[in-house]
Design a protein around this nucleic acid. Sequence first.
RNA 1: GGCAGGGUAGCUCAGCUGGUGAGAGCGCACGACUCAUAAUCGUGAGGUCGCGGGUUCGAUCCCCGCCCCUGCUACCA
Length: 514
Amino acid sequence: MPNKYYITTAIDYANGDPHLGHAFEKIGADVLARYHRLRGEKVLFVTGMDEHGQKVAQSAAKEGRTPQAQVDEIARRFQEAWAALGISYDRFVRTTSEQHKIGVRALIERIFERAPDNFYTKTYAGWYCVGCEAFKTEEEIVDGKCVLHATRTLEWVEERNWFFRLSAYTDRLRTLIASGNFLQPRSRANEILSLIDQGLEDVSASRAREGWGIPFPRDTGEGEPQTTYVWFDALPNYITAVGFPDTSGEFAKWWPVDVHVIGKDITRFHALIWPAMLIAAELPLPKLVWAHGFVLLGGDRFSKSAGVTLDLQDAVARFGADPFRYFLMREVPFDADGNFSWERFEERYNADLANAWGNLASRTIAMIEKYRGAIVPPAEPNELDAVDAADMAAYDAAMQDNLPNRALEYIWATVARGNEYVDRQAPWKLAKDPTRQDELDATLAALVRQLTRQAIALSPFMPGRCAELLSQLGAPADFLATPGRLGDGGVTTFDVTGWRVAKGASLFPKREIA
RNA sequence: GGCAGGGUAGCUCAGCUGGUGAGAGCGCACGACUCAUAAUCGUGAGGUCGCGGGUUCGAUCCCCGCCCCUGCUACCA
């Protein structure tokens, strides 16, 4: 019985188009999902959209359409972007779906039933900025106006809301996060621990107004309509995606999730509010919350308003989706911030993909065609396989640790080794010496085995290019889809004898750098 | 302000509990080779290890002060 692996990304707020930051997270999660599929695990990869909130309603009004039409359009654009990038999600959750709304209300009711004192009503009073959709503190107010929305007048609002008793979970959350297993990387766990030490405050569970959202299932006893507030609206997508409130079937099969991949900016909600909600509802906790860093552009935080942007279409068009995925995964650590620049992209494309790996494939295939009639000769594994094994194991360990950037370094160590091996063996000399034909066979077969290993290991990163390489090497059509292509320690077993290679177009055509 | 993490070759970064010559990749220069996408392989280039003190036989790695950068410091998500 293969292991299951349930992985989610954050659901993106439907108030703008997908950008580099969104893409980085989805690509990272996709790489992990594909890696686990390669290991033969049963994988469920879920992503989606967070579609409620006043901002959505406002921008819809500005566009002159209904909120639903607005989020339908934005969801479509996100899905197009993910298709272009090869994101292999299994399900796309939308918080405006019936299934989700039912699940959210059921979760809240479940908490009312199992932890009745966890919800309570309280009057909240303060200056409310409609622009921000939030209450503002004194520091955020200048001349009686919100600093971010100087054209709007702040409203003094007193409203009675439902609150969730997050503070009651302080000790359990501290223990959970201090364990080091629940929230990673460690630096993020430390931040949350210090936040806990400052004292946790209870959080709003509803807003006392009708809005673009899910009606809170219970009123406050004063007849006011209550709309479910963001945490309770969005976070439960992870369980509604697998059928909640039905806790048998799908839910039983997939929950608890193996990893929530999120951005470091929303760590708090996933590391504090979400587990507290689940404990209150007596549901199992996620196994891991992984907070990745940000992709910076020229050292600056990606920001539409600051004009620091990068067009995804442009990024894909330039070299194709696979090189873009490779570049982001190689250049930006998954546990910290990293930089994006076109110059760097071109350098890495030419150095890593065109020159190092692409050319290794090219020269190998060309020699087999030239010296062996395109048929891979029989040969036993040799020292190249033996030395590569250590790198494959390191690759595997890095992938298990959710550090794809490090995993790539190990694969490129084998690529460098492959090119050195070719030069050392000098097949073009062996080919001229009738007494050394066995050596030539051994060399060429070793290279094909290595390229195959690399194509397997890199297929989560560059699925299209890796499939193309395997095709050029003459691997069976279903080679990658065959279970067990990647085992524990990155071990792979396969026989390349007799494969018919066929040199096609360059895997990664060299680009002239302007 | 507080807490946390950083400032190492042009660029991106490794350097575990202090000790022969401070490293890797990319880029760059020179040499070799010719199977290959003018690719590859080899060699080199010599960076005050943020600044100033201190501890020590000896510190990039320990302590103090300072400068600079980043993150967190809860209801936009």
